[in-house]
């Protein structure tokens, strides 16, 4: 038994170190945002909120932040509207090559690296004048987040019990009534988790945003990167801290629903 105990202690120590490794970049960002110097010092000295004031006063973050949120909301909405009928259609199709191929297409934006999507859209959007426009940006984000919603809804659709639909029909309900009272409520959990992931993925999306915008339509991650490139002072840390807190808050919320551990397939 002691052999097993040694083994377990070793594992606990290793795991604790890895947890530290996962958390430390976030901690450092938060600490640095309260620094009173513009460069990193060890041990940390002083406390100030001036970088937060500077970030708020700066023109470079507020606009992109608002744009990012609106973009995430709208792209998620578009993805939801397209996903639901598509997922329902998959249910009606016979399993086979055609179904597998269509499923592969719908998951395509997830399988193809974001960088490829970015460069492909860069050329196509330039041709039709969508580069550095909000509609272009929105289309690109809707494409990127679509598989996340589709996959989540598809899981709900596949789990939908045919006998409930049959029971509803036998009780005299028409297809629309059945859809509204039986099908849609069954899809809500999948739809909600898919939508939240889509929202997060859109907010996080740097690569594609960078390719399809120039200066007019900067989103928050791109604005942070450009500021880092140009100035690199703790203002970035202040803005980043806001995003850390936001990310953790979302994590707490979706953890309540038990969805957090299903994050395994998100893009980086």
């Amino acid at each position: 038994m002691s052999e097993a105990r040694t083994w377990n202690s070793l594992r606990a120590v290793a795991a604790a170190a890895v947890y530290g490794f996962l958390i430390i970049p976030l901690l450092v960002v938060v600490l640095f945002s309260f620094s009173d110097k513009s460069f990193f010092t060890f041990p940390p000295s002083g406390f100030s909120l001036k970088w937060y004031q500077a970030a708020w006063a700066s023109e470079r973050f507020l606009g992109p932040a608002v744009r990012s949120v609106v973009l995430a909301l709208l792209s998620t909405l578009i993805a939801v509207i397209i996903s639901v009928p598509a997922a329902l259609a998959m249910r009606k199709m016979h399993p086979g090559r055609l179904r597998a191929a269509i499923e592969f297409l719908f998951l395509g934006p997830l399988i193809v690296p974001a960088l490829i999507v970015g460069i492909a859209l860069l050329y196509s959007f330039t041709k039709v004048g969508l580069i550095d426009t909000f509609p272009g940006l929105l289309a690109a984000h809707a494409l990127i987040v679509f598989p996340f919603v589709f996959r989540a809804v598809l899981t709900s659709v596949v789990n939908l019990q045919q006998h409930l639909i049959d029971a509803s029909a036998i009780l005299g309900a028409g297809p629309l009534y059945t859809f509204r009272r039986i099908v849609l409520p069954a899809l809500v959990p999948g739809l909600a988790s898919g939508a939240i992931f889509a929202f997060i993925v859109s907010l996080d999306q740097f690569t594609v945003s960078l390719f399809v915008t120039q200066t007019e339509q900067a989103v928050l991650p791109v604005a942070i990167y450009k500021y880092l490139y140009d100035v690199n002072d703790p203002v970035v840390a202040a803005v980043s801290t806001v995003l850390v807190v936001f990310g953790l808050a979302v994590a707490v919320v979706i953890d309540r629903f038990g969805w957090l551990r299903h994050l395994g397939g998100t893009s980086g």
């Binding site: 947890y19 996962l22 958390i23 976030l26 960002v29 997060i200 907010l203 996080d204 740097f206 928050l220 991650p221 942070i224 990167y225 980043s240 995003l243 850390v244 990310g247 953790l248 979302v250 994590a251 979706i254 953890d255 957090l260 551990r261 994050l263 998100t266 980086g268």
Partner: peptide, 12 residues
């Protein structure tokens, strides 16, 4: 603790 960092922006 494992999954939460995934929800923080990659750039950050």
């Amino acid at each position: 603790l494992v999954a939460a960092p995934l929800l923080v922006n990659t750039v950050v």
